[in-house]
C-alpha cells in the first residue's frame, strides 16, 4: 500500500510546526520502509490536494488548539470528525476535508484510508523556531504512537 506520512505546520510559529517535527522523527525511525513516503509542508487547503493525490493511505500530522486540551496531547481523528462547513470566509479556508471531497468529486485518486493525528499546542501565534517545553517533550512519544498505528 502506497502510504504518505505528511507533516503540516509552520516551523517558525512556535508549536505550529509540531506536525513537521513529529514526521522528521518518524522518518529517522522508519528508514527501511520504501513503501512509505514522508513529506512536510507549510500549506493548507488546495495545495494539500496536489500533495496527497495518488496515495492509497494518508497519515496526516498537524497541530490543533482546542478549548480544553493539554499541550502535547494527541488526538487520532478521521475526516468525519470534522464538523466544519465547506462554506468559506476567506481563501485560506479551503480546509483539508473540503479539499479531499473536491478531489474525489473531480475524479482524482484520493487516499482511501486517512488518519489524522492532531497535537494539542500551547502557542501557535508567536514567532519562534522552538516548540514550548511540553509540546517538544511529547514528540518522541507521538512518533511511537503513530508507528504502532500503521
Amino acid at each position: 500500500m502506497k502510504t504518505l506520512i505528511f507533516g503540516l505546520g509552520n516551523t517558525i510559529l512556535t508549536d505550529d510546526g509540531v506536525g513537521i517535527k513529529v514526521v522528521r522523527e518518524l522518518k529517522k525511525m522508519m528508514e527501511e520502509h520504501p513503501e512509505i513516503e514522508f513529506k512536510e509542508g507549510s500549506v493548507g487547503g488546495l495545495s494539500i490536494l496536489d500533495e496527497i493525490e495518488g496515495f492509497d493511505r494518508l497519515v496526516l500530522v498537524d497541530s490543533i488548539k482546542t478549548a480544553d486540551g493539554k499541550p502535547g496531547e494527541v488526538y487520532r481523528l478521521s475526516p468525519e470528525d470534522f464538523n466544519t462547513p465547506a462554506h468559506l470566509i476567506n481563501a485560506h479556508g479551503v480546509d483539508f476535508v473540503t479539499a479531499v471531497k473536491l478531489g474525489r468529486k473531480l475524479g482524482y485518486k484520493m487516499p482511501e484510508i486517512i488518519d489524522i493525528y492532531a497535537v494539542q499546542v500551547k502557542d501557535n501565534v508567536t514567532f519562534s523556531k522552538e516548540c514550548t517545553s511540553d509540546v517538544q517533550a511529547s514528540i518522541p512519544g507521538i512518533a511511537d504512537v503513530i508507528m504502532e498505528g500503521l
Binding site: D62, H92, G93, A118
Partner: peptide, 15 residues
C-alpha cells in the same frame, strides 16, 4: 478576502 492571520495552519485548516 481578508487574511485573518495565518493560524489556519492548525487543524481544521480554516479560520
Amino acid at each position: 478576502d481578508p487574511c485573518l492571520a495565518c493560524t489556519t495552519h492548525s487543524l481544521p485548516g480554516q479560520m
